[in-house]
Design a protein around this nucleic acid. Structure first.
Length: 282
DNA sequence: GCCCAGGTGAAGC
DNA sequence: GCTTCACATGGG
C-alpha cells in the first residue's frame, strides 16, 4: 500500500492502544490481537490465530481508501498544503463506535500519553483476554459496555480517569440498556447522529465529532479541540479566535467533502510543529 | 509552585 | 449567544 504512514496514523491521536515493539506495531482490533509490520509491498499483518478473511483489518486501517483522491478535494491553500506536506501518508482509521465513544469520553483535558495509560489500565482490568502468540504478554479486548456499566464509579476512578468516571459509567449504562443504540446512528444523517450523541452525559460537540469521524466515517465531521482551534485561528483568521456560527460556516464550506481528513492533518501539523515554536497569542 | 492537556456542564450575564 | 469556573490527574 503506497502513501500509508502506519506509525504516523497509529500515533496521531485518533486511537490509543497501539504499542511499538521491535520495529512493529502491536494492538487489538475487536477480538483480534494484531502485529503490523511496514514492508516494501505494504503493511504485513500477523495474528495469534489463523485468519482467512482480512476485511475487518482493511476496514479498520481504511487501506483501500485512495488517499490521493481525498487530498485532491482539499482547497489549495498554503496552511493545508504545508500540513499535508509535513504529514505524508497520514490516514483516518475506522474504529468500533463503542470503543471510540468510550475512549474520547476519557480524553477531555488529558494529554494523549495519559489517555493511553488510562485506556490500557481499563482494558487490562475489565477487557476480555484475547489470544496472543506463545510467550507473549497478555492482551485484552476493549471492555464492552455491559462490563463497564456494572462497575462502581470508584472502580473506574481507580483507573486514573478522575471526574470522567461518572460519564463513562452513565454512558455505558445507556448503551447497555438500549437507550442509546450505537448501531442505529450509522444510518442517520451526520447532524442527527451528532444530536443523539450529544444527549449523552459528558459528550459535547468535540467528542461527538470525534466519534462521527473516527467511528462512523462521516467525512465532514470536524472535531475542534485546543490544537485545531489554534490552527484555525493562527492559519486562517490572522491570529483571532473563531467560534460559534462563524467557525461552523467556515469549516463546513472551506475544507470540502473530506473536511475530517483536513482536520486530522491540521491537528497533527499543529501539535508537532507548533510545540517547538514560541507560543504566540491565541 | 505554575500552566496545560484531542472538554463538558452549570451558572452567570 | 458569550465567559468563567469546577472537575481529577499527571507532564513539563
Amino acid at each position: 500500500m503506497r502513501n500509508y504512514d502506519l506509525g504516523l496514523t497509529l500515533t496521531s491521536g485518533q486511537t490509543f492502544r497501539w504499542v511499538r515493539q521491535q520495529g512493529a506495531w502491536e494492538g487489538v482490533v475487536g477480538p483480534h490481537w494484531v502485529r503490523l509490520h511496514v514492508a516494501l509491498e505494504g503493511i504485513r499483518a500477523e495474528t495469534a490465530v489463523p485468519v482467512t478473511n482480512w476485511d475487518w483489518l482493511a476496514a479498520y486501517l481504511q487501506s483501500r481508501v485512495n488517499l490521493e483522491a481525498v487530498l485532491k478535494t482539499f482547497p489549495p491553500d498554503a496552511p493545508l498544503g504545508a500540513a499535508v506536506a509535513a504529514c505524508r501518508g497520514l490516514r483516518l482509521l475506522r474504529q468500533d463506535p463503542w470503543e471510540c465513544l468510550a475512549s474520547f469520553l476519557l480524553s477531555s483535558t488529558k494529554q494523549i500519553v495519559q489517555i493511553q495509560q488510562i485506556i490500557a489500565m481499563l482494558c487490562a482490568r475489565y477487557g476480555s483476554p484475547v489470544a496472543v502468540p506463545p510467550g507473549h504478554e497478555p492482551a485484552f479486548a476493549f471492555p464492552c459496555a455491559d462490563r463497564l456499566a456494572g462497575c462502581e464509579e470508584a472502580e473506574l476512578r481507580a483507573c486514573k480517569m478522575g471526574f470522567r468516571a461518572r460519564y463513562l459509567r452513565a454512558v455505558a449504562q445507556k448503551v447497555t440498556s438500549g437507550e442509546m443504540d450505537l448501531r442505529r446512528l450509522a444510518v442517520l444523517s451526520m447532524d442527527e447522529a451528532r444530536s443523539r450523541l450529544m444527549e449523552l452525559p459528558g459528550v459535547g460537540r468535540k467528542i461527538a465529532d470525534c466519534v462521527l469521524l473516527f467511528g462512523y466515517g462521516f467525512q465532514q465531521a470536524f472535531p475542534v479541540d485546543v490544537w485545531v482551534m489554534r490552527a484555525l485561528g493562527r492559519l486562517y483568521f490572522r491570529g483571532r479566535r473563531v467560534t460559534g456560527r462563524r467557525r461552523e460556516r467556515f469549516v463546513a464550506t472551506h475544507f470540502g467533502p473530506h473536511a475530517g481528513y483536513a482536520q486530522q492533518y491540521l491537528f497533527h501539523y499543529m501539535r508537532t510543529r507548533g510545540a517547538s515554536r514560541p507560543r504566540v497569542a491565541d
